[in-house]
């Protein structure tokens, strides 16, 4: 144990040397780890790459959508994230979500009423159908709780904080900032609705 402290003077050279080596070591030990941790954030926000590849997935046929109600369809997307991204001996993950489908204001267009199950629609008919159907995600825009159809009051209700949406997914009451997220979807000739893991209003995160 040295008896008392010895304070030698610090020359300019020593100070500059220590400063330079110190910063280099600091950079080497902080910049790569930062990128290491921020990798998904960079990919998601800057390069807009999503974990889910651009694929169309079927959710159901328009004949299954009843009038005056929003029904839930389960849809499964392939998900490539960390160890589920299809390496040599690993599988591709999957993410199952629910899409709520409902006719505009609950009224089935007469186009569909006349056609039976197997019939096919022309291009223009498909376009009118796409305008008259709402395909929305079931995550509440406030805090992401699963919303559900409340047949008593004919509205879509979020159980967490009392958010209320109309049958078209428009925001009516409660804390949610805006209406439900609307899927990017298309309708095939034989009336099957196909959905992509992309939303009209942007990225809702979580879902």
């Amino acid at each position: 144990m040295p008896e008392e402290l010895q304070k030698d003077p610090l020359t300019r050279g020593q100070f500059l040397y220590m400063g330079a080596v110190g910063t280099m070591m600091g950079l080497a030990l902080t910049v790569p780890p930062a990128f290491f941790i921020m990798d998904p954030a960079l990919k998601a926000t800057i390069f807009n790459r999503s974990d889910i590849p651009h694929v169309w997935r079927e959710i159901g046929s328009i004949f299954e959508v009843p009038s005056g109600e929003a029904t839930a369809f389960r849809v499964t997307f392939p998900q490539k994230q960390t160890y589920d991204s299809g390496g040599p001996n690993s599988r591709v993950g999957s993410l199952t979500e629910t899409a709520l489908a409902s006719w505009h204001d609950g009224k089935i267009p007469d186009l569909v009423k006349k056609r039976s199950e197997g019939a096919t629609f022309s291009k223009s008919e498909v376009r009118t159908l796409e305008k008259n159907i709402n395909v929305m995600s079931n995550a509440c825009t406030h805090m992401g709780c699963p919303v559900r159809w409340d047949s008593v009051h004919h509205q879509i209700v979020c159980p967490c904080h009392g958010g209320i949406y109309t049958i078209n997914g428009m925001h009516v009451g409660g804390p949610p900032p805006h209406g439900l997220w609307r899927y990017v979807f298309r309708i095939r000739e034989d009336g099957i609705i196909e959905v992509r893991h992309k939303w009209v209003q942007g990225t809702p995160w979580i879902v």
Binding site: A72, E97, A139, R148, P159
Partner: peptide, 10 residues
């Protein structure tokens, strides 16, 4: 955990 639930109340 299952996001696609419609009856669970978180």
């Amino acid at each position: 955990m299952d996001i696609s639930t419609t009856d669970y109340v978180p």
